[in-house]
Amino acid sequence: MSVRSLSATLALSATLLGAGASTAFAARPNTYELPGDPGGSKFEGIGYDARTGNYYVSETTGGEIHRGQVNSANAVEWLKGDGTDGRWTARGVNVDSQGRVYVAGGPNGIDHPGAPDLWVYGRDGKLLAALRTGVPNSFLNDIVIGPDGAAYITNSNAPQIFRVSERNGRWSVSTWADATGTVKTATGFNLGGIVLSPDRKALVVAQGNVGKLWRFDLRTAKATAVDTAGADLVNADGLVQQGNTLWVVRNFSKVLSTLRLSADGSSARLLSAKPTDPDRVLTTAKLAQGRLLVVDSKFDEATAVPPYQVITLNPRR
Rank of each mutant, 00 (worst) to 15 (best):
T187E: 10
R200I: 06
D178K: 13
T185R: 08
A202K: 08
K201M: 03
F189H: 07
T175W: 02
K184I: 00
L203S: 00
E166T: 11
T175Y: 01
K201F: 00
Q207F: 03
G181V: 11
T175F: 05
V183Q: 04
T180K: 14
T182E: 11
A202S: 14
A177M: 12
D199G: 06
W171C: 07
V204F: 06
P198R: 01
G181P: 04
Q207P: 03
T185L: 03
T182L: 08
D199M: 13
A186M: 05
V164I: 11
N168P: 02
S172Y: 06
V164P: 14
R163P: 11
N168A: 15
G192K: 10
N168W: 09
W176V: 06
L191A: 05
T180A: 12
G208C: 00
T175V: 10
D178M: 13
G181T: 10
L196T: 00
W171P: 05
K184L: 11
A177K: 05
S197C: 07
L196V: 00
D199Q: 02
S165T: 13
S172W: 03
A179Q: 06
N168G: 15
E166V: 12
G193M: 06
S174H: 02
T185E: 12
R167E: 14
G169Y: 02
A177P: 11
S165N: 13
D178W: 09
A179K: 01
I194L: 14
D199A: 09
S174K: 14
A186P: 06
Q207S: 10
T175Q: 14
R200A: 12
I194W: 13
K184Q: 14
A206C: 04
S174N: 07
G169M: 11
T180R: 14
V204I: 12
W171I: 02
S165M: 08
A179S: 11
S197N: 03
L191V: 06
I194K: 08
V204K: 01
G169D: 00
T185G: 09
V205L: 15
